[in-house]
Design a protein around this nucleic acid. Sequence first.
DNA 1: CAGTGGTCTAGACCACTAG
DNA 2: TAGTGGTCTAGACCACTGA
Lengths: 254, 254
Amino acid sequence: MTAPSVVETPSFSPLYQQIRTLLVKGLEQGEWRPGQAIPSELELAARFKVSQGTVRKAIDEMVVSGLLVRRQGKGTFVATHAEEATQYRFLRLTADDGDAQPLKRRLIECRRMRAPAEVARALDLRSGDTVVHLRRLLIATEAVAGQMAEVPVVLDDIWLPAALFKGLTLDSLQAWRGPLYRMFEAEFQLKMVRADEKLRAVAAGADDAALLEVAAGAPLLQVERLASSYGGRPVEWRLGLYRTDRHHYRNTLT
Amino acid sequence: MTAPSVVETPSFSPLYQQIRTLLVKGLEQGEWRPGQAIPSELELAARFKVSQGTVRKAIDEMVVSGLLVRRQGKGTFVATHAEEATQYRFLRLTADDGDAQPLKRRLIECRRMRAPAEVARALDLRSGDTVVHLRRLLIATEAVAGQMAEVPVVLDDIWLPAALFKGLTLDSLQAWRGPLYRMFEAEFQLKMVRADEKLRAVAAGADDAALLEVAAGAPLLQVERLASSYGGRPVEWRLGLYRTDRHHYRNTLT
DNA sequence: CAGTGGTCTAGACCACTAG
DNA sequence: TAGTGGTCTAGACCACTGA
């Protein structure tokens, strides 16, 4: 048989990469929503006029990069922040004693503003564009001196391009029960696919210290995160301050 | 053709996984050393009596996990810490301005001792076993106030099971030019394959502060690392203190 | 040029899921 | 049972490397 061609995408790259590109485009355009199944491998092979193996290889890569999830006997599904075993897929903070109590959320602020220079640069906006600024606490429930107590562990400042988050208000946020990224997925059709973080140790300022219930000047782990959606398009910039007296940030290198 | 079998490994798992296991065993036993080529795919297929595609899939996984490296037209090679583009494959610290000057090393200490409880637990030793304790600085050369200056950025305390590092001395370490993990590979046939890190923000103690040339109490990024070799066997435990005033620890989530 | 990894096909059979 | 992903084969051709 002669080599098939995917006429829709010119340019020369392996077939399976072209197919991956087409599938990613489908995800971007919402052809298949998070949690839904994409067509079967044989169906896609027929549609693109390639063999099942080629489709398989394209899907393999997307599975590795966290875009899709396979379930044997059922199908291949669009990855979602909804049904993660762990509530927070991107949060690398773990309790030292390993217990994984769910975290409580407390929203402190939600307002629209002109993008500060640093935020505009990170989100690739023009310096005048409007952003939504959120500030919130994540609170752990843990045994302290024999008593169960609520201890704030994360203070996040979050900036979002207002153009992408129309209708986001303090009320709608407070009504939402569940992780932010799940809400972004459900309400704004924006799926966070990748995040790049820069970590530093910093001394707590007075305000942040008060919110996190530590002494001013106490060491905190600062996590600067740029999260992006399918095309690598930056969609959120956040600055987190983590208390690491009873928690730590875990990472694996290979 | 009837299904082939790999008689050497009973148990039921996919053929390609059995082959991966055999290849990993070859790496553990030093059949192929870091930097060397393993046999070609066709040769391995013949040896194991499977098709090339099956060997390919086994190798694919090992490439993803960083054990092997493919070079088209040349062969498949055992990954090594020797010829990394970046000198330090496992060091996630980056200068804020992005410039990647090589770091200088200064060895402060190398002595044998009974394993402290914490170290013994991490390295899976009995609490009486001997360990080698190293202490060293990594020093960056950077422009400070228009002048090039040497600034200490990392202080590492490193513990190694003495039984695995016979003959390691301060002199031999100081004679070695290059990353530590390259030396472990070359001198002790121990390749670091994986590392698990726990990050915290801490306040600098007096001694550490002096070595890193910061004020006592200054915030530092503490990186606890357990590095392991092929079988997942822990081989090194280290506690690093990173200055993050001009550097940051980078990480990508997917 | 021969030898390597890289892509692609076509078809077989297995393992799992669900009606 | 039908439909899905998972494994495996055999063989074709391409792209790159180095003698």
